[in-house]
Protein backbone atom coordinates (compact mmCIF):
# COMPACT_ATOMS: atom_id res chain seq x y z
CA UNK A 1 0.00 0.00 0.00
CA UNK A 2 2.73 2.46 0.93
CA UNK A 3 4.57 1.63 -2.27
CA UNK A 4 1.44 2.42 -4.24
CA UNK A 5 1.00 5.75 -2.45
CA UNK A 6 4.63 6.67 -3.09
CA UNK A 7 4.33 5.64 -6.73
CA UNK A 8 1.22 7.78 -7.26
CA UNK A 9 2.82 10.73 -5.49
CA UNK A 10 5.91 10.58 -7.69
CA UNK A 11 3.71 10.25 -10.76
CA UNK A 12 1.77 13.35 -9.70
CA UNK A 13 5.02 15.25 -9.26
CA UNK A 14 6.22 14.19 -12.71
CA UNK A 15 2.93 15.33 -14.23
CA UNK A 16 3.47 18.70 -12.59
CA UNK A 17 6.87 18.89 -14.23
CA UNK A 18 5.24 17.80 -17.51
CA UNK A 19 2.85 20.74 -17.36
CA UNK A 20 5.81 23.00 -16.72
CA UNK A 21 7.93 21.54 -19.51
CA UNK A 22 5.56 20.55 -22.31
CA UNK A 23 5.16 22.93 -25.18
CA UNK A 24 1.55 22.41 -26.16
CA UNK A 25 -1.25 24.04 -24.22
CA UNK A 26 -3.43 20.93 -24.53
CA UNK A 27 -0.65 18.68 -23.18
CA UNK A 28 -0.39 20.84 -20.09
CA UNK A 29 -4.17 20.69 -19.66
CA UNK A 30 -4.18 16.89 -19.84
CA UNK A 31 -1.19 16.58 -17.53
CA UNK A 32 -3.07 18.66 -14.95
CA UNK A 33 -6.20 16.55 -15.50
CA UNK A 34 -4.32 13.26 -15.03
CA UNK A 35 -2.79 14.70 -11.89
CA UNK A 36 -6.28 15.59 -10.66
CA UNK A 37 -7.42 11.98 -11.14
CA UNK A 38 -4.36 10.71 -9.28
CA UNK A 39 -4.97 13.01 -6.32
CA UNK A 40 -8.56 11.74 -6.20
CA UNK A 41 -7.37 8.11 -6.12
CA UNK A 42 -4.81 9.00 -3.44
CA UNK A 43 -7.54 10.41 -1.25
CA UNK A 44 -9.46 7.14 -1.59
CA UNK A 45 -6.40 5.02 -0.68
CA UNK A 46 -5.28 7.09 2.28
CA UNK A 47 -8.66 6.84 4.02
CA UNK A 48 -8.88 3.93 6.41
CA UNK A 49 -12.52 3.14 5.90
CA UNK A 50 -14.61 3.79 2.85
CA UNK A 51 -17.77 5.80 3.44
CA UNK A 52 -20.47 7.16 1.19
CA UNK A 53 -19.35 10.73 1.79
CA UNK A 54 -15.79 9.86 0.84
CA UNK A 55 -16.88 8.19 -2.38
CA UNK A 56 -18.88 11.29 -3.30
CA UNK A 57 -15.86 13.54 -2.68
CA UNK A 58 -13.50 11.29 -4.64
CA UNK A 59 -15.93 10.78 -7.51
CA UNK A 60 -16.79 14.45 -7.86
CA UNK A 61 -13.10 15.35 -7.60
CA UNK A 62 -12.20 12.97 -10.41
CA UNK A 63 -15.15 14.02 -12.56
CA UNK A 64 -14.50 17.75 -12.12
CA UNK A 65 -10.72 17.79 -12.31
CA UNK A 66 -10.21 14.84 -14.63
CA UNK A 67 -13.09 15.25 -17.07
CA UNK A 68 -15.21 18.41 -16.92
CA UNK A 69 -12.40 20.95 -16.63
CA UNK A 70 -10.10 19.46 -19.32
CA UNK A 71 -13.09 18.98 -21.61
CA UNK A 72 -14.09 22.60 -21.15
CA UNK A 73 -10.54 23.87 -21.59
CA UNK A 74 -9.87 21.79 -24.72
CA UNK A 75 -13.17 22.99 -26.14
CA UNK A 76 -12.03 26.56 -25.53
CA UNK A 77 -8.70 25.71 -27.16
CA UNK A 78 -10.55 24.37 -30.21
CA UNK A 79 -13.18 27.06 -30.61
CA UNK A 80 -10.70 29.78 -29.76
CA UNK A 81 -8.20 28.43 -32.31
CA UNK A 82 -5.47 29.01 -29.71
CA UNK A 83 -2.06 28.58 -31.19
CA UNK A 84 -0.91 25.42 -29.48
CA UNK A 85 2.65 26.57 -28.96
CA UNK A 86 3.26 28.29 -25.69
CA UNK A 87 5.68 31.17 -25.74
CA UNK A 88 6.81 31.35 -22.13
CA UNK A 89 8.27 34.32 -20.32
CA UNK A 90 10.82 31.90 -18.88
CA UNK A 91 12.19 29.35 -21.38
CA UNK A 92 11.22 25.68 -21.06
CA UNK A 93 14.64 24.39 -20.08
CA UNK A 94 15.20 27.18 -17.61
CA UNK A 95 11.77 26.70 -16.05
CA UNK A 96 12.51 22.99 -15.59
CA UNK A 97 15.70 23.95 -13.77
CA UNK A 98 13.79 26.40 -11.58
CA UNK A 99 11.17 23.69 -11.02
CA UNK A 100 13.95 21.39 -9.82
CA UNK A 101 15.10 24.10 -7.44
CA UNK A 102 11.51 24.41 -6.19
CA UNK A 103 11.50 20.69 -5.51
CA UNK A 104 14.75 21.06 -3.59
CA UNK A 105 13.24 23.91 -1.59
CA UNK A 106 10.20 21.76 -0.80
CA UNK A 107 12.44 18.91 0.39
CA UNK A 108 14.37 21.30 2.59
CA UNK A 109 11.14 22.78 3.99
CA UNK A 110 9.74 19.35 4.77
CA UNK A 111 12.78 18.49 6.86
CA UNK A 112 12.29 21.57 9.02
CA UNK A 113 8.52 21.03 9.26
CA UNK A 114 8.13 17.79 11.14
CA UNK A 115 4.65 16.43 11.54
CA UNK A 116 3.41 15.98 15.09
CA UNK A 117 1.74 12.68 14.09
CA UNK A 118 2.27 9.60 11.92
CA UNK A 119 1.28 9.56 8.24
CA UNK A 120 1.25 6.90 5.53
CA UNK A 121 4.09 8.24 3.46
CA UNK A 122 7.06 10.49 4.12
CA UNK A 123 6.77 11.79 0.59
CA UNK A 124 3.39 13.50 0.96
CA UNK A 125 4.71 16.78 2.36
CA UNK A 126 7.71 17.37 0.06
CA UNK A 127 5.81 16.32 -3.05
CA UNK A 128 2.65 18.25 -2.29
CA UNK A 129 4.62 21.42 -1.55
CA UNK A 130 6.78 20.90 -4.66
CA UNK A 131 3.66 20.46 -6.81
CA UNK A 132 2.15 23.64 -5.40
CA UNK A 133 5.39 25.57 -6.06
CA UNK A 134 5.58 24.19 -9.62
CA UNK A 135 1.99 25.27 -10.22
CA UNK A 136 2.83 28.78 -9.00
CA UNK A 137 5.93 28.87 -11.18
CA UNK A 138 3.94 27.81 -14.24
CA UNK A 139 1.32 30.51 -13.61
CA UNK A 140 4.02 33.15 -13.40
CA UNK A 141 6.05 32.02 -16.39
CA UNK A 142 3.39 31.28 -19.03
CA UNK A 143 1.49 33.61 -21.31
CA UNK A 144 -1.61 31.71 -22.33
CA UNK A 145 -4.64 32.12 -20.13
CA UNK A 146 -5.50 28.43 -20.59
CA UNK A 147 -2.05 27.33 -19.46
CA UNK A 148 -2.46 29.54 -16.44
CA UNK A 149 -5.76 27.87 -15.57
CA UNK A 150 -4.16 24.42 -15.98
CA UNK A 151 -1.24 25.58 -13.82
CA UNK A 152 -3.72 26.79 -11.24
CA UNK A 153 -5.13 23.25 -11.22
CA UNK A 154 -1.62 21.94 -10.55
CA UNK A 155 -1.33 24.35 -7.63
CA UNK A 156 -4.73 23.17 -6.32
CA UNK A 157 -3.67 19.53 -6.73
CA UNK A 158 -0.56 20.19 -4.68
CA UNK A 159 -2.66 21.70 -1.89
CA UNK A 160 -5.17 18.86 -2.18
CA UNK A 161 -2.32 16.35 -1.76
CA UNK A 162 -1.16 18.20 1.33
CA UNK A 163 -4.70 17.80 2.61
CA UNK A 164 -4.06 14.03 2.57
CA UNK A 165 -2.15 14.32 5.82
CA UNK A 166 -5.29 15.72 7.40
CA UNK A 167 -7.87 13.21 6.27
CA UNK A 168 -8.69 12.30 9.85
CA UNK A 169 -8.67 15.88 11.11
CA UNK A 170 -10.57 17.65 8.34
CA UNK A 171 -14.29 17.11 8.15
CA UNK A 172 -15.84 16.19 4.83
CA UNK A 173 -17.54 19.56 4.62
CA UNK A 174 -14.22 21.31 4.11
CA UNK A 175 -13.21 18.78 1.47
CA UNK A 176 -16.48 19.48 -0.27
CA UNK A 177 -15.76 23.18 0.08
CA UNK A 178 -12.40 22.67 -1.59
CA UNK A 179 -14.05 20.92 -4.48
CA UNK A 180 -16.90 23.37 -4.83
CA UNK A 181 -14.52 26.28 -4.79
CA UNK A 182 -12.21 24.63 -7.28
CA UNK A 183 -15.14 24.02 -9.57
CA UNK A 184 -16.47 27.54 -9.16
CA UNK A 185 -13.06 29.15 -9.67
CA UNK A 186 -12.34 27.18 -12.81
CA UNK A 187 -15.84 27.79 -14.07
CA UNK A 188 -15.57 31.55 -13.67
CA UNK A 189 -12.08 31.49 -15.18
CA UNK A 190 -13.49 29.48 -18.06
CA UNK A 191 -16.22 32.02 -18.65
CA UNK A 192 -13.63 34.77 -18.54
CA UNK A 193 -11.42 32.94 -21.03
CA UNK A 194 -14.43 32.48 -23.27
CA UNK A 195 -15.07 36.20 -23.16
CA UNK A 196 -11.41 37.09 -23.64
CA UNK A 197 -11.51 34.80 -26.61
CA UNK A 198 -14.51 36.51 -28.14
CA UNK A 199 -13.19 39.91 -27.36
CA UNK A 200 -9.63 39.61 -28.58
CA UNK A 201 -9.54 36.58 -30.86
CA UNK A 202 -6.57 35.41 -28.89
CA UNK A 203 -5.92 34.09 -25.39
CA UNK A 204 -2.55 35.61 -24.74
CA UNK A 205 -2.45 37.36 -21.39
CA UNK A 206 0.72 39.22 -22.31
CA UNK A 207 -1.47 41.19 -24.69
CA UNK A 208 -3.77 42.05 -21.83
CA UNK A 209 -1.60 45.04 -21.19
CA UNK A 210 -3.85 48.05 -21.50
CA UNK A 211 -3.96 48.65 -17.79
CA UNK A 212 -0.88 49.91 -16.11
CA UNK A 213 0.10 52.85 -14.08
CA UNK A 214 2.05 55.11 -16.32
CA UNK A 215 -0.33 55.08 -19.28
CA UNK A 216 -2.05 58.41 -18.69
CA UNK A 217 0.91 59.70 -16.76
CA UNK A 218 2.93 59.89 -19.94
CA UNK A 219 1.18 63.15 -20.63
CA UNK A 220 1.71 64.27 -17.08
CA UNK A 221 5.17 65.66 -16.78
CA UNK A 222 7.07 64.79 -13.67
CA UNK A 223 9.15 67.66 -12.40
CA UNK A 224 12.46 67.49 -14.25
CA UNK A 225 13.99 70.61 -12.79
CA UNK A 226 12.10 70.77 -9.57
CA UNK A 227 9.06 72.60 -10.92
CA UNK A 228 6.00 70.70 -12.05
CA UNK A 229 4.80 71.87 -15.43
CA UNK A 230 1.69 73.97 -15.19
CA UNK A 231 -1.23 72.26 -16.80
CA UNK A 232 -2.69 75.35 -18.41
CA UNK A 233 -2.74 75.55 -22.16
CA UNK A 234 -2.25 71.86 -22.87
CA UNK A 235 -4.44 70.05 -25.30
CA UNK A 236 -7.34 68.42 -23.54
CA UNK A 237 -8.35 66.29 -26.44
CA UNK A 238 -5.21 64.26 -26.07
CA UNK A 239 -6.46 63.03 -22.74
CA UNK A 240 -9.78 61.75 -23.94
Amino acid sequence: MENLIDFLLVLALLLGFACLGLRRVSQCVWAAAAQGIITGILLLIVHDKVEIGLIIVVASSIVVKGLVVPWYLTRTIRTGRVEVEVEPFIGFNLSLVVGGLAFGAALWLSTSLTLPFEIDSELIIPISLATAFIGLLTIISRRKAITQVAAFLVLENGIFMFGLVLVSALPTLVEMGVLLDLFAAVFVMGVTIHNINREFDHIDTSRLNQLHDMLPARRWRMPRNGVRRSDGGGSDRANL
Binding site: I139, F152, M189, E199, L208, L211
Partner: peptide, 21 residues
Protein backbone atom coordinates in the same frame (compact mmCIF):
# COMPACT_ATOMS: atom_id res chain seq x y z
CA UNK B 1 -18.27 44.66 -21.11
CA UNK B 2 -15.21 46.12 -22.76
CA UNK B 3 -11.71 44.78 -22.94
CA UNK B 4 -10.18 46.91 -20.18
CA UNK B 5 -12.69 45.73 -17.61
CA UNK B 6 -12.22 42.18 -18.89
CA UNK B 7 -8.48 42.47 -18.40
CA UNK B 8 -9.06 43.76 -14.87
CA UNK B 9 -11.45 40.89 -14.15
CA UNK B 10 -8.94 38.33 -15.41
CA UNK B 11 -6.12 39.69 -13.26
CA UNK B 12 -8.43 39.83 -10.27
CA UNK B 13 -9.62 36.26 -10.70
CA UNK B 14 -6.18 34.82 -11.28
CA UNK B 15 -4.38 36.65 -8.47
CA UNK B 16 -7.37 36.28 -6.16
CA UNK B 17 -7.54 32.53 -6.79
CA UNK B 18 -3.81 32.05 -6.29
CA UNK B 19 -4.03 34.01 -3.05
CA UNK B 20 -6.97 31.99 -1.88
CA UNK B 21 -5.15 28.75 -2.75
Amino acid sequence: RHHRSLEATWKYLLLGSVGIA
